[in-house]
Amino acid sequence: MDTITIYHNPNCGTSRNTLALIRNAGIEPTIIEYLQTPPSREVLTDLIKRAGLTVRQALREKGTPFFELGLDNMALTDVQLLDAIQEHPVLMNRPFVVAPLGVRLCRPSELVLDILPRDQQGPFTKEDGEVVIDELGRRVRQA
């Protein structure tokens, strides 16, 4: 069985597209709506590390209190940034996907294709109209 977990925000188009790509591979993932059920500090730290990111790279600026909290201050430590994410889960960038082939912050959403254990089962077009998977289930390479 292919176990996939997505840290999802249903109000985010990138997150919705990522979830749809997982389902297009015939996989029903475990969905964690992280704004309602934030990951523990340990889980968040592990996600960031396994995705090959820094804590700062895992921060979301748009639509968050990033600037109001002074998180653009480059002198802040990872501990301080993690504290801010724990207090304001909206600061966690999304969607993180955990799959048998790795962990990714799927921005853009098609990054999930690199870690899915199954091929796409049919065509897929993102919400904005961008074709990602053709009618034969093959990834479309954008120039």
Rank of each mutant, 00 (worst) to 15 (best):
M1R: 10
M1G: 13
T3E: 07
T3H: 01
I6V: 12
I6K: 03
I6C: 01
I6T: 00
Y7I: 01
H8V: 06
H8W: 04
N9I: 00
N9Q: 05
P10I: 01
P10Q: 02
N11Q: 14
C12N: 11
G13C: 07
R16W: 04
R16C: 02
N17E: 06
T18Q: 10
I22S: 00
I22L: 01
R23A: 03
G26P: 09
E28S: 03
T30P: 00
I31S: 05
I32A: 06
E33I: 04
Y34C: 11
L35V: 06
Q36E: 14
Q36T: 06
P39K: 11
P39A: 11
R41H: 10
V43A: 11
L44K: 08
I48N: 07
R50K: 14
G52N: 04
L53K: 09
Q57L: 12
L59E: 05
E61D: 13
K62M: 12
K62L: 11
G63P: 14
G63S: 12
G63F: 14
T64H: 12
P65D: 08
P65K: 13
F67Y: 06
F67L: 01
E68H: 09
L69I: 08
G70I: 12
D72E: 14
M74I: 11
A75Y: 03
L76N: 08
T77Y: 07
D78N: 08
V79Y: 09
Q80K: 11
L81F: 11
L81H: 11
L82F: 03
L82W: 06
L82V: 07
Q86L: 01
Q86A: 03
H88N: 15
V90E: 14
M92F: 03
M92V: 01
N93H: 12
V98C: 01
A99N: 07
P100R: 02
L101D: 14
G102M: 00
G102H: 00
G102T: 01
G102F: 02
R104I: 15
L105I: 10
L105E: 07
L105Q: 07
C106A: 15
C106Q: 09
C106T: 07
R107C: 00
R107K: 04
R107I: 05
P108D: 05
S109D: 10
E110R: 09
L111Q: 15
L111E: 15
V112C: 07
L113S: 06
D114S: 15
I115P: 06
L116G: 08
L116P: 10
R118N: 14
R118Q: 15
E127T: 14
D128T: 03
E130Y: 00
E130R: 05
V131I: 12
V132G: 07
V132K: 04
D134K: 08
L136T: 14
G137P: 13
R138F: 13
R139A: 08
V140H: 00
V140D: 00
R141T: 13
R141V: 13
Q142V: 02
A143T: 05
A143R: 05
